[in-house]
Design a protein around this nucleic acid. Structure first.
Length: 997
RNA sequence: GCCCGGGUGGCGGAACUGGUAUACGCGGCGGACUUAAAAUCCGUAACCCGAAAGGGUGUGAGGGUUCGAUUCCCUCCCCGGGCACCA
């Protein structure tokens, strides 16, 4: 018997597979309509998209943890391929990031060069493992052809008003000299180096992920994630429902009072004082409040303290009286206002009402500062908590002192990094554009006027914010003539430019589409509010009968409406385009991107009616997002904005990115006005490029779009996504959010669904031999290269699957791997013993074992139970060995079951010994015969008083009476019964008989 | 403190909707082959009592439901992970 071929054979097949394109995914067209609920959609159509978190190509090379996840999904996708699916299993590089930059600083090598070297090494390592990646789709986030689209997508956030620059307190790591997101500074220490973070004020780009909090929470119901992953997401989003209550402040010149958030408004009578966060007090001081010296001292001290110190071990509550008083609206009693840092500025409203009787923290604070803690229970004894809360909110709303409110722990995403090795943020700051006065044109609808609905209010509000507002009453709006309206509007728009804004309601919204495509003039931002553009052709006879339209001149409206509009034609002439629907509108139903082409940002406000009220603060808020800040997006044709080459990568002590030092790069011209402008010097975080890479895999070489809608429609959503638990809060949340936004914009086709991952699983860590974490400093790191060199890839793969349950942490065991090697040696031996004509014929036992194994592997892989799959394959292998060989009729099936686990060895046997031309990995998955899984007889277990006393072999289909009869005759049973008669006999078919005496 | 996991032989771990606890692998022990060793193969193995047949005990601890509990319920202990002054 020859030795099992390893290294030469493995390398040979790896090359051959690549040449033959065995793992190449084939782009096809979208075959069928997916079910609207992704959970029920299952794996639709002919495709299967399996995804692993693309690795960060660190200088240390592949860790043994990477192959655990990669091999698992490799096995899964190989099986799907053999089941006839068109499989996409791609690989790429999360290539931007700090370690590379730090290495570059140390060695004075360009990060791009370091990255290229690391990628080459990772590629070599991954290829040596025989993973069935489609290498033709390889992407790298640091490749300008890739980050062009990361930048472009970021600009879509800017244009939709979801990105903004704000001065915020950031977590500053003094060692790495970098601002960290809250998520990266958990526990008050830097995630990377463990140094305690400081608080610093810095202008940062932020993305409004909080706007998506509710959807990110609710849509978890539509995906199949591991429960603990869902739980972590839910906790991270941290929704709480309750009320905001406004407390009037006597003697303070800000008339708005103080708003607090509480989940227990029913306890308001017990509120004996208010507490505000020091940051709030600081803000008041900036606005002119002059507190006592003591307060000033306290606030200054609190702002110096880091989050970590504030949340520190003892949690000794500090605070100071503000000297201000307010009135408890329930008891009408005067209560004091305190300032204390146990109240967080960033949660709720930054202020609380303290109810010592109900809240431990308030109680501790009250005791320490000798504040009153009266207990007044407003809750009727038999009310549930929910009812009490609801009643109290009703009372607050009736009194006009408070209202129902929901808050989330989730904060906006701090998107800026003051570092070199990341995507440059493609914005320039133009002083002269910032100063320009912007025009707004408000267009009313059918039967409207400058005095109707919310127009007068909106005009006034916008003027307060410095806009020049045009609000014409259009001719004869009850009997609108198309050309007359156009003639009234066109001269106004002719004065408009790329900074200006048009807002149209209903028929006015429809008119915007006409105006843009007629005038072909570029406008800044258009808002179509419940635009009179319907998804389906209108049935005019029905409209005439509709009571909502009663008394209206439907015929004239119809003539106007017959002038066709096109979303597509209008699209190029407005830089930003927002459509707003009300979700309960009698005239205009909510539309989505199945009818409106990509590029329009569709928002649905939870409003009743057709926007006929006099005030809409939400609309105002949206329009104010178009207010020019002087930050100008680069036009698409100037993307990618490439990272300039620099000599020194050190971040600066001032907190600015190294890019700020390159004046030649920073100084540029404004793409809008052509004047002098300066580039943004911050770069994007790692989370940016990894938020959409799964979309790029669908169409990795596209240079006109980040991915074509056709390809996205075919491949998305990802069917199975596996990654580490360390990414279940941040990466998973960010990428879900990013994807939802692109979906909202229509760039991800509607058919894909708004959730990127149909299912998400997680693998456990691989620990070092003793059970502790692997780390370089402990010197207990196992290098995959060494394992592959010694045993080959097949053994390495199977060992990693066999170690323990996939989702649990397991320690590496040098001895354990030997068993796997023996297993594959045995397999090889089975195909090398004697001549083929000496093969045994299958007996009953072997037949059952084979069919059971097929079933077990078929189900087991789908459930990611790889460890038990391997043991079952070992059992079958032992069975064949005992029988003296593999019976002819099981040879191919057996090999195929093994193929996903040991792709090289099985291919070697398949092609060399069984003389197949095509790869085993493109063969079909074996099936089993359910009737051959059960044996004709089984061992009936006999229990007497719960103890096993005998076993009798009986026919599988034995009847209950017959079984009982046989059992009661058994000698052992008679002995144990000792003459007594059974009180009860329980029969479990196919299993046992339990006799109670 | 709160929320998730998880505690099964010497070790990694199996056990379907409650139904023979310890599959498979490692390691151990005994044997075969060999001059010898390695490799391979065969056998053995939870613990206690017993020469054996056999009996008893046993899935972190205690209790409960059940003819029957690793599995379901209650209380508690330990380990791992996440969140943590979130009003």
């Amino acid at each position: 018997m020859s030795d099992r071929p390893i290294h030469d054979s493995e390398a040979k097949w790896q090359e051959k597979w690549e040449k033959e394109g065995v793992y190449r995914a084939e782009d096809r067209t979208f075959p069928d309509q997916p079910h609207p609920n992704p959970l029920l959609r299952k794996e639709r159509g002919s495709k299967f998209y399996g995804l692993i978190e693309f690795p960060y190509p660190s200088g240390d090379g592949l860790h043994v943890g990477h192959p655990r996840s990669f091999t698992a999904i490799d096995i899964f996708t190989r099986k799907r391929r053999m089941e006839g699916k068109n499989v996409l299993y791609p690989i790429g590089w999360d290539a931007f990031g700090l370690p590379t930059e730090n290495y570059a600083i140390k060695t004075k090598t360009a990060p791009a060069i370091v990255t290229a070297q690391n990628i080459a090494n990772f590629t070599r390592q991954l290829k040596s493992l025989g993973l069935g990646f489609d290498w033709s789709r390889e992407v790298s986030t640091a490749d300008p052809a890739y980050y062009k689209w990361t930048q472009w997508q970021f600009l879509q956030f800017v244009k939709a008003g979801l990105a903004y620059k704000a001065k915020s307190t950031i977590n500053w790591c003094p060692k790495d000299k970098i601002g960290l997101a809250n998520e990266e500074a958990q526990g008050g220490v830097c995630e990377r180096c463990g140094t305690a973070v400081e608080k610093r004020e810095k202008e940062q780009w932020m993305i409004k992920i909080t706007k998506y909090a509710e959807r990110l929470l609710k849509d978890l119901d539509t995906v199949d994630y591991l429960d603990r992953i869902k739980t972590q997401q839910v906790n991270w989003i941290g929704k709480s429902e309750g009320a905001t209550i406004r407390f009037q402040v006597s003697g303070f010149r800000f008339q708005d009072g103080i708003e607090v958030f509480t989940t227990r408004p029913d306890t308001i009578s017990g509120a004996t004082f208010l507490v505000i966060a020091p940051e709030m007090a600081e803000a008041w001081m900036r606005d002119g409040w002059e507190p006592s010296e003591e307060v000033e001292k306290y606030v200054a001290m609190a702002s110096r303290r880091s989050e970590q110190e504030r949340a520190g071990a003892e949690r000794e509550k500090g605070g100071v009286s503000s000297g201000l008083k307010t009135i408890n609206p329930a008891t009408k009693k005067e209560i004091p206002i305190w300032i204390a840092d146990y109240v967080l500025a960033s949660y709720g409203t930054g202020a609380i009402m303290a109810v010592p009787a109900h809240d431990e923290r308030d109680d501790a604070f009250a005791k320490k500062f000798h504040l009153p803690g009266i207990f007044v229970c407003t809750r009727e004894k038999d009310w549930s908590l929910e009812k009490a809360v609801n009643r109290s909110i009703e009372w607050l709303e009736k009194e006009g002192v408070g209202k129902r409110a929901t808050t989330y722990k989730l904060r906006d995403w701090v998107f800026s990094r003051q570092r070199y090795w990341g995507e440059p943020i493609p914005l320039v700051h133009c002083e002269s554009c910032a100063k320009k006065k912007q025009k707004v044109l408000l267009i009313h609808g059918f039967e409207g006027s400058a005095e109707s609905n919310w127009f007068p209010w909106m005009k006034q509000e916008l003027e307060k914010h410095g806009f020049e507002v045009f609000l014409p009453t259009l001719p004869d709006s009850s009997h609108p003539k198309f050309e007359e309206w156009m003639a009234a509007l066109e001269p106004i728009i002719k004065q408009f430019g790329e900074d200006d804004i048009i807002v149209g309601h209903s028929l006015g919204g429809r008119s915007i589409l006409h105006l843009l495509s007629r005038l072909k003039k570029r406008i800044g931002h258009v808002y179509l509010i419940a635009p009179a553009v319907w998804e389906k052709p209108l049935n005019w006879n029905e409209i005439k009968k509709d009571p909502n339209w009663e008394g209206s001149d439907v015929d004239t409206f119809r003539v106007f409406h017959d002038h066709a509009v096109s979303w597509e034609d209008a699209r190029p002439y407005a830089d930003r385009k927002t459509i707003i629907f009300s979700d309960d509108d009698p005239y205009v139903p909510v539309q989505d991107h199945s009818t409106i082409p990509a590029g329009w940002f569709i928002q649905t406000l939870h409003q009743k009616g057709h926007f006929n009220h006099t005030e809409y603060p939400e609309l105002l808020e949206l329009i104010l997002q178009s207010k020019n800040t002087g930050w100008i997006p680069l036009p698409d044709d100037q993307l990618p904005l490439k990272l300039p080459e620099v000599e020194a990568y050190e971040p600066t002590d001032t907190g600015e990115s190294p890019l700020a030092k390159i004046r030649l790069w920073v100084e540029t011209t404004c793409p809008k006005c052509g004047g002098k402008a300066e580039r943004e010097t911050d770069t994007m975080p790692n989370w940016a490029g990894s938020s959409w890479y799964f979309l790029r895999y669908c169409d990795p070489h596209n240079d006109r779009e980040f991915a074509s809608p056709e390809k996205l429609k075919y491949w998305m959503p990802v069917d199975l996504y596996n990654g580490g638990m360390e990414h279940t809060t941040l990466h998973l949340l960010y990428s879900r959010f990013w994807h939802k936004f692109l979906w909202d914009m229509g760039y991800v086709p509607h058919e894909c669904g708004s959730e990127p991952y149909r299912s998400r699983r997680s693998h456990g860590l691989i620990l070092a031999q003793g059970g502790e974490k692997m780390s370089k400093s402990k010197g207990n790191v196992v290098n995959p290269d060494d394992v592959v060199a010694k045993y080959g890839a097949d053994v390495f793969r199977i060992y990693e699957m066999f170690m323990g349950p996939f989702d649990q942490a397991v320690p590496w065991d040098t001895n354990g791997i030997e068993g796997v090697k023996r297993f594959l040696d045995k397999v090889w031996g089975l195909f090398n013993v004697g001549a083929i004509h000496e093969l045994p014929l299958p007996d009953d036992g072997l037949q059952i074992l084979y069919h059971q194994t097929v079933k077990k592997i078929t189900d087991g892989i789908d459930q990611l139970q790889f460890n038990t799959c391997v043991s079952q394959l070992m059992i079958l292998t032992n069975g064949f060995q005992d029988a003296g060989g593999v019976p002819e009729e099981y040879r191919e099936g057996y090999l195929k079951l093994l193929a996903p686990f040991a792709p090289h060895l099985t291919e070697e046997i398949w092609r060399t010994q069984l003389s197949h031309k095509d790869s085993i990995h493109r063969s079909s998955w074996p099936s089993y015969d359910p009737t051959k899984i059960k044996s004709a007889t089984f061992e009936l277990v006999i229990q007497i008083n719960g103890k096993v006393r005998d076993r009798i072999t009986v026919a599988t289909d034995i009847a209950e009476d017959e079984a009982k009869e046989v059992v009661l005759k058994s000698e052992k049973v008679l002995t144990w019964l000792a003459g007594k008669s059974p009180q009860k006999i329980v029969y479990v078919p196919g299993k046992l008989i339990s006799i109670v005496v």
